[in-house]
Design a protein around this nucleic acid. Sequence first.
DNA 1: TCTTTAAAACCGACCATTCGGTCTGTGTTA
DNA 2: TAACACAGACCGAATGGTCGGTTTTAAAGA
Lengths: 201, 201
Amino acid sequence: MKDSKGQILKISLLLFLQKGFKEVTMNEIVKSSGFSKGAFYHYFSSKEEVFKEVIDVYFKQMLHLDYETLPSDSLKSFYQANLDIHKKRDKMIRSWYQETFEGDFPNNIYYILFDALRLLPEVREQQQKRIKAEVKAWEKVIEKARANDEIKTILSSENLAKQFVYSSDGIALHMVMISSSAELIDEVKTVWESLYKSIKT
Amino acid sequence: MKDSKGQILKISLLLFLQKGFKEVTMNEIVKSSGFSKGAFYHYFSSKEEVFKEVIDVYFKQMLHLDYETLPSDSLKSFYQANLDIHKKRDKMIRSWYQETFEGDFPNNIYYILFDALRLLPEVREQQQKRIKAEVKAWEKVIEKARANDEIKTILSSENLAKQFVYSSDGIALHMVMISSSAELIDEVKTVWESLYKSIKT
DNA sequence: TCTTTAAAACCGACCATTCGGTCTGTGTTA
DNA sequence: TAACACAGACCGAATGGTCGGTTTTAAAGA
C-alpha cells in the first residue's frame, strides 16, 4: 500500500515547519512530494485543508504530552522522562526530514504554530488549555516532591513550575534564533538539572 | 515637514508585526499608510527593501539593550531597570498601533524576527551576538551581587543568568500564544521577583 | 511680490508573473 | 467496468512592480 496521502501530508509538514503557511506554494508541495496537482487535489480540497490536517495529525501530538503517564513519584524522574520524550520526537522528525531533503533541518516549530494560531481559531483555545495543564502537571509533581522532602525551596510551587516550563520554552526560542535546534534538548537538560540541584535537599 | 517615508515605514512595521513578511501585501501597506503605489516606490525600491529598513530602523533597537547604561550595583536594580525599559517600549509601540488601527494590537514580535532571520542573513549573526551579550551582562551583575552578599545560591552565575534570560523569553512566547502580550511584562516581573526572592540573602 | 521652473512628491491604471485551484484525460486496481 | 489514483495543461485572481502623467514645493529671477 502506497499511502500517497500520508506522504503528501508529511512533506507538507516539513515544508510548513521551514517557512510557514503562506510562503509554501502548491507547486513546492506537489514537486517535493513527487506527485502532481491532480493527485494533491484528489486527496485534499485546498491548501488550507492540508495545513489543517497537518496541524491535526502531526502538530498537536508533537506538542501534546500525556502527563498522566509520566512518572510522578519524583521531580527528577518527571523532568527526565519529559526530556526523553522530546528527544525521541526530535529524532523522529529529523529522520523524516533527511528522507526527503538534504542539509540541515531548518526547524522552526514556532513559525508553524503562529500560523496555526492565526488561521485556525480552535488551536488558540487548545493551546491555552495545554499550557495551563502543563503548569498544573509540574505543580502537582513539585508539591509531591516537596512533601516527600525531595526538594526544599521558598519558591511557591506555581512559580517553580513556571521556572521549569518557561525556561524550556525560552531555550527553544533561543535555539530557533541561532538555528541550532539540535542542541536544544541538551541545553534544556543543563538548565533543568542546575535548577533541580539548587532546590534538592 | 511630512516625513512620508517615516510614515510608510512605521505602518509597515505594524503590519509585519501582525502577519510577517509574506502575508502583508503592497496594497495593504499603501492603503494603510494613506499613500499610493507611486509614493511607495518613490521612497523604496521593493517590498524587501522596506522590510529590511523596518528591521534596521525599528526592530534592532526594539531588541537592543545597552547593558552598560543599566544600573549594575545590584541584581535587583538591574532587573528592575530591565523591566522598566521593556515596559516603556511596549507602551510606545502600542500607542503607535492605536494611532492607525483599531482594536487589540496582535503583536507577535517573533513572527517578524523569524522572517528577518530567514530573509536577512546578517540578522542571524547579530542576534547570536546579542544573546551572548545578554547572558554575559546578567552573569556579570550576578557575580557582583554574589560578591556583595546580595544573593546566595549554589547555582553557577551562568546558569542563574540563563534562568533569568530564558524565563523572560519563555514568558514572551507564552503570551504570544495566548495573545495577551499586554500582560507580558507583569508576568516576567512576577517570575523574576520570585526567582530573586529565592536566592537573596 | 509675482512669475518661472525644475525637482520632488505623488497618483493610479497598467503589466508580467505567480499563485491556488480546475478540468479533461489516462492508466491502474479490484 | 466502474471506481480510484494520478498527470499536467490551463484558468482567473491576486501580487509585486512599472510608468506616464499630475500636483506640490521651493528656490531663483524679474
